[in-house]
Design a protein around this nucleic acid. Structure first.
Lengths: 189, 189
DNA sequence: GATATCATTTACCATATGGTAAAAAGCGAT
DNA sequence: ATCGCTTTTTACCATATGGTAAATGATATC
């Protein structure tokens, strides 16, 4: 629990009573490799906080190719937050890349926290804003740089992911084929 | 003024007195083609709302190429909001693509509004979140699709911009050269 | 209306990346 | 250790895009 509370406290102050309330609503949840946390076309039923493991967001593009467009590491929220808040169907999959341990909150419990703790919405709003900004920043070089530079920027952004995530996921994240990525890796050495 | 107030009211309720306060702080501002609204390395001094014209966000990449990574049309905010709020140096330029008319707010006036109107922060937070989500959604195909598909998605997202914006800006937005874009345009016909 | 300036198109060749396929390497289960 | 399955690497050729350069077309200025 501690990493979760520490994470939240970066974005606002909460007293003991408030963190106790939050913790009382959290449920431990295990997700095995390749299982989905939520799926495209379905309403996301819970918000998660990743304690252990790696998760990816992915969707299918025009040509039916599966595109990974986001990775999430330990100590970050796992949620299609916009769709979760509005309780509408998601447009992408959230899938475990490795076995994962998460804290999860149902919509009911999440709302209960929001209705009880003044300032909770401000905190979660801040967190989401931060995540979105980081996502945009990480993805910018994926448009404007060549493939090698893109890969290097990925390594910089996710130094620990290189060996925990299949090559093919990274390749689609970078917008190249896995053959190209394999070639690039070789050239870098 | 009306388009501005209408825009804001989409994201929350304000009474007459509150909108009057907001309007009293707004200053009309003209920005000529190619002039900068704010610059990389400098602290953004104001938030703008674009009444007329087109604006772009751009920066220089690794190779020194100028990259356009965002366009803004009429009736949208023009601001590097994160950097404006924190009053720290921006990392990119905001430049007029055409002659522009804006409403602008100084940091002092913007803060004054926030301190007076309860709920203002929630409204502006929502607006920013929305803009960030839209940005991510628009930029996704720019990583995973081929150049022709990327151009078509641009046309879909910005149907009015095609003829108001130099080809070279669009090309760098799409992550291709202007020669390639010219070729693609020809092939589409 | 002529000229200069800037934006766009076209052409040509070079090169990075894609697509298909096969080989090699890693990994688990028996 | 052996087998089967998955992931990664390598090879080959095809193709889209990049880079350089010149030609054409638009726009503004005088």
């Amino acid at each position: 629990m501690k990493p979760f509370i520490d994470y939240i406290l970066q974005f606002g102050n909460l007293n003991q009573q408030q963190t106790d309330l939050i913790m009382s609503k959290a449920k431990m949840f295990e997700l095995h490799k390749d299982e989905y946390f939520s799926e495209a076309g379905k309403i996301p039923r819970q918000v998660g906080f990743l304690l252990e493991g790696v998760v990816r967001f992915c969707y299918y593009n025009n040509k039916g190719q599966e595109i990974t467009h986001h990775f999430i590491e330990e100590n970050n929220f796992v949620s299609d937050q916009e769709k979760f808040e509005a309780q509408v169907a998601a447009s992408e999959y959230i899938q475990a890349v490795t076995d994962c341990r998460l804290l999860v909150f149902s919509k009911k419990d999440w709302d209960a926290i929001g209705n009880t703790i003044v300032g909770w919405d401000a905190i979660t709003g801040l967190i989401l804003k931060n995540c979105l900004l980081k996502t945009i920043e990480r993805r910018s070089p994926l448009v404007s740089e060549d493939a090698t530079t893109r890969y290097l920027s990925f390594v910089e952004n996710f130094p620990n992911l290189m060996n925990r995530v299949p090559l093919s996921y990274i390749a689609s994240y970078l917008g190249i084929t896995q053959q190209s990525l394999s070639r690039i890796r070789k050239n870098i050495l």
